[in-house]
């Protein structure tokens, strides 16, 4: 038998990710996104200066999983809360983690105004086109024709209107600095997501304005699919309405990225 050699660690749990079992359903991408955020926090060395704000929705317990100071907001109010924190403590890195109902329905007002004020806050926006926690009702981002428990014959745009494209909307606001849409349905997309979240935090730390990373995500449970089917459905249906890409990258952000 050969002598034991010290090995190089190539993969491990990020320090900023708690060593606990999550409550998320099998195949849900929340866990992946949490991990990516934790990796970015580790990479930037900001665990001790970061404050997260959890939403109301499936990720209401995000504070049990991401190991920084954390607050739990009222439904839709995370960005107002984040504003209050950041204005008193500009040295902190403040991020909100919000789903589509939280950010784009009940919290639209807070979103639009935090963005237009150019608050130095980062939002990670999980868009899975459904209200997960309450059991699968129509979300502001539910696709036309998509069946949910409150659109039992499919979303009829005559009755329920059209889905909101958050990145397109928020990118029109002068205070927004870095607004991009990514996904997490395969390793390549996850790597792109991580790069975007890192940039968003750096934009905040450089004081360049509001940053938002939308993650086109899934909900196997309420979509009524296996995890793999849900990832296929996401690519075939969600991406046509929510194209991945950069919607707003201010010149100041481009300069920052060129330096890094």
């Amino acid at each position: 038998m050969s002598e034991a050699k010290e090995e190089k660690i190539v993969f491990q749990r990020p320090k900023a990710l708690c060593d606990v079992v999550t409550h998320y359903c099998p195949g849900c991408l929340h866990g992946v996104v949490h991990r990516v955020i934790a990796e970015v926090i580790d990479d930037l060395g900001i665990q001790e200066i970061t404050v997260g704000i959890a939403p109301v929705g499936c990720s209401v317990l995000a504070y049990n999983y991401i190991a920084t100071d954390f607050a739990e907001a009222a439904h839709g109010r995370a960005l107002a809360m984040a504003t209050g924190m950041k204005r008193v403590h500009p040295e902190l890195v403040v991020f909100t983690y919000q789903g589509d109902g939280d950010l784009a329905a009940i919290g639209t007002n807070e979103l639009i105004h935090a963005a237009t004020r150019g608050e130095n806050i980062t939002t990670i926006f999980i868009n899975n086109a459904i209200y997960g926690m309450t059991g699968g009702q129509m979300a502001p981002t539910t696709l036309p024709g998509q069946v949910t428990t409150s659109t039992p014959t499919g979303r009829d745009t005559k009755l329920a209107g059209f889905p909101i494209r958050v990145c397109e909307l928020v990118s029109t606001l002068e205070g927004s600095a870095y607004i991009v849409r990514r996904s997490a349905y395969n390793p390549s997309e996850i790597r792109k997501l991580k790069a975007a979240i890192k940039t968003a935090f750096q934009v905040q730390m450089a004081g360049l304005g509001y940053s938002l990373v939308e993650v086109v995500s899934n909900c196997p449970t309420n979509w009524g699919m296996t995890p793999l089917e849900s990832l296929k459905w996401l690519q075939e249906n969600m991406l046509a309405y929510y194209p991945l890409g950069d919607y707003k990258v201010k010149d100041s952000v481009k300069e920052l990225m060129a330096k890094k």
Partner: peptide, 14 residues
């Protein structure tokens, strides 16, 4: 006022 009271909440948390 929804915004104001939740900004208050955020600042108070710090």
């Amino acid at each position: 006022e929804l915004g104001a009271v939740n900004m208050l909440y955020g600042a108070a948390c710090t």
